[in-house]
Amino acid sequence: MKQHKTYLTGIKPTGIAHIGNYLGAIKPALEKISHNKDERHIYFIADYHALNLIKDRNLLKKYTYSIAATWLALGLDPNRVIFYKQSDIPEIFELSSILACMTPKGLMNRAHAYKAKVSENIKKKIDPDTDVNMGLYTYPILMSADILLFNTDVVPVGKDQVQHVEIARDIAENFNKTFGNTFSLPKYVLNKETAIITGSDGRKMSKSYHNTLEIFETEKVLKKYVYSMKTDSSLPTDPKDPDNSNLFSMYKQFATQDEINDLRERYHQGIGWGEVKRILFNKINDYLEEPRESYKNYTDKTWLIDEFLEKGRHEARQLAKPFLEEIKSKIGVG
């Protein structure tokens, strides 16, 4: 009988993490960690997934350390979770090959990332498969291996990753039907409060819109960003709707409930946008002051990160190796 309910979270090292990554993925994932001994929490750096985009070895190493340092600086405790690099767990890639043989091509044809790229190429009137590598095409299979190898029960995701969890579930069901009950059927959990984080222009925070802010930017850059955030032309004395304000929406992610209630009341009474921005900047800056220093410490001393990841590699493989042997035995190659 299964002893633990397993939660799994992975982030690709394709850049420096921004505020949207923190509020939409990192913060909700960290909040789900509990002291419950019946829960197992797994966090990994999805460096092989990043290879679809990053073709510079130095840049990939830099981003890998940066993402690891981000998790650690924001409170991830490697003594309470399993924390590793995807590339350190060879069983993931062996399972990925097995799962590929259980996955209909039509399922991959429907994957959002692949369909989006093909659609973009068709609009440009070029070959539909231009710049489509097999890593992109089979991305959902590798992600399924990430999830299923650890018999994951729950995967916290953003909206754009929901389909991948559903695909992993489909693949698991197909395997279980063919070879007998083997994999847990994963479910996704979506944090609705932080699913959409707006950037400085009021649109979803995204690198493609150039409206993001790196989590550990300097105080000066943070202030410039906050003061550039889009507002309407209402007067300082005009009552304002906090629930339709991107400033208030971001403030809620960093403030206490009492502080949120306070600012909400000031919105209703009338408050100038300049004052709201001052309050927001001070709140975020205070909140990130200590993590900012911690992040710098980790990126300056990457050997500390290596030690944590080595510990996680050992713990992850202790789970992965025997389970992969069980899987191989079921399919007739073990």
Rank of each mutant, 00 (worst) to 15 (best):
V162G: 03
V162M: 11
Q163N: 07
Q163R: 05
H164C: 01
H164I: 02
V165E: 04
E166R: 03
E166H: 02
I167R: 00
A168E: 08
R169D: 00
R169K: 13
D170L: 00
D170T: 00
D170F: 00
E173F: 03
E173A: 10
N174R: 14
F175K: 03
N176I: 04
K177D: 04
K177H: 13
T178W: 11
T178E: 14
F179M: 14
F179S: 10
F179A: 11
G180Y: 12
G180E: 15
G180S: 14
N181Q: 13
N181H: 14
N181T: 15
N181G: 10
T182F: 11
T182L: 08
T182Y: 09
F183A: 01
F183L: 03
F183Y: 07
L185K: 07
L185R: 04
L185W: 00
P186L: 02
K187M: 07
K187H: 13
K187I: 05
Y188S: 04
Y188Q: 01
Y188C: 00
V189M: 10
V189K: 05
V189W: 09
N191M: 05
N191G: 03
N191V: 07
N191I: 06
E193Q: 11
T194A: 07
A195Y: 01
I196A: 02
I197L: 13
I197N: 14
T198D: 10
T198I: 10
G199F: 02
S200W: 03
S200I: 14
D201M: 08
G202Q: 07
R203S: 15
R203G: 07
R203Q: 14
R203P: 02
K204A: 04
K204T: 05
K204D: 03
K204F: 01
M205G: 06
K207A: 09
K207S: 11
S208H: 08
S208A: 11
S208K: 09
S208Q: 06
Y209E: 06
N211E: 05
N211L: 03
N211A: 07
L213F: 11
L213V: 15
E214F: 13
I215M: 11
I215S: 12
I215N: 10
I215L: 12
F216H: 07
E217C: 14
T218V: 08
T218C: 06
K220N: 10
V221P: 05
L222D: 06
K223Y: 10
Y225L: 07
V226Q: 06
Y227H: 15
Y227G: 02
S228H: 09
S228R: 15
M229P: 02
K230T: 14
K230G: 08
D232T: 13
D232R: 12
D232K: 12
D232E: 12
D232I: 12
S233T: 12
S233C: 12
S233G: 08
S234T: 06
L235D: 15
L235F: 13
L235C: 09
P236R: 06
P236L: 05
T237K: 14
T237H: 14
T237R: 13
D238T: 07
D238L: 01
